[in-house]
Design a protein around this nucleic acid. Structure first.
Length: 258
DNA sequence: ATGCCATCAGTTTGATGA
């Protein structure tokens, strides 16, 4: 089963790119972030026309996440994190799909740091970590994936020295990441590619993609029961070069069948 | 230190992003 995550930066503005990528790569399950669409404008018909059922949790203008599948049904298990009011920021959606519990995440950016947005990011991270603990305790196969807005190590940042005060790379944010991962999760990309420079985001500015001045902020976390099934992982870099593309590229993992 | 570019709404500039 191939599972992908893609921060589309506007699902309606990005629709041609999204549909082309779905048709060319045919991932089985897809998590989307930054829909920037209210629920009643989510393009479910266009997505269904290329073979995918969808579950979405949008809001006007900002945030928003979705889970797509072309294998079986989507059984929603949660929208919004426990302990975080989800009334005005749609950032977490969870569903059982094809025998795996999938939580998709759009973790707050947190800039500027310090400030209320950074405090919100840290609070959100804490609540995610609490919920992740409860997911591990179920013993079910679980994938947590999406835009975590954190570069875990300096290998994940072009020019790390420029990012140490930023809300995506500040020490306390990386510490929060490792508090989460050290519960027993596996960073799937790093497990298969421990030493490679791998980025998933490049600013639109200054020709950043052509210079490979990027960040690795879109991640897959696997619970222990899934680690043995991890058969591949990568980034669909070609998509980032298309016209009217997102500033993120799609990221994927392959899980072998049981 | 800032802008660099791009999304959205909706009318045109402002909030947001990373």
């Amino acid at each position: 089963m191939k599972i992908a995550t893609y921060n589309v930066n506007g699902v309606n503005g990005r629709l041609p790119v999204l549909l082309r990528w779905l048709q060319e790569e045919r991932p089985d399950v897809v998590c989307l972030q930054e829909l920037k669409s209210p629920d009643d404008r989510f393009p479910s018909e266009a997505i269904r026309a290329v073979g995918y059922e969808a579950l979405w949790h949008g809001q006007s203008r900002w945030n928003g996440i979705a889970i797509l599948t072309r294998v079986g049904e989507i059984h929603e298990t949660r929208r919004g994190l426990p302990g975080i009011s989800d009334d005005n920021q749609s950032r977490y959606l969870e569903a059982a799909v094809n025998g795996v519990l999938i939580g998709t995440i759009y973790l707050p950016n947190g800039n500027p740091r310090p400030g209320p947005k950074f405090e919100y990011k840290m609070r959100w991270f804490e609540k995610l970590t609490e919920h992740a603990r409860s997911l591990l305790d179920t013993g079910l196969p679980v994938v947590l994936t999406g835009d975590f807005n954190v570069m875990p190590t300096k290998l994940d940042v072009y020019k790390p020295e420029r990012w140490v005060d930023d809300a995506l790379f500040a020490p306390e944010v990386r510490e929060a990441w490792f508090r989460l991962v050290d519960q027993g999760w596996t960073d799937a990309i790093r497990m298969l590619h421990p030493d490679e420079t791998i980025y998933t985001f490049w600013k639109y500015l200054r020709n950043a993609f052509a210079r490979n001045a990027g960040l690795r902020i879109d991640h897959f976390l696997l619970d222990p029961s899934l680690v043995g099934r991890l058969a591949g992982a990568g980034v669909d870099l070609q998509v980032r070069a298309w016209e009217k593309t997102s500033d993120h590229a799609p990221v994927w993992i392959e899980l072998s069948d049981i």
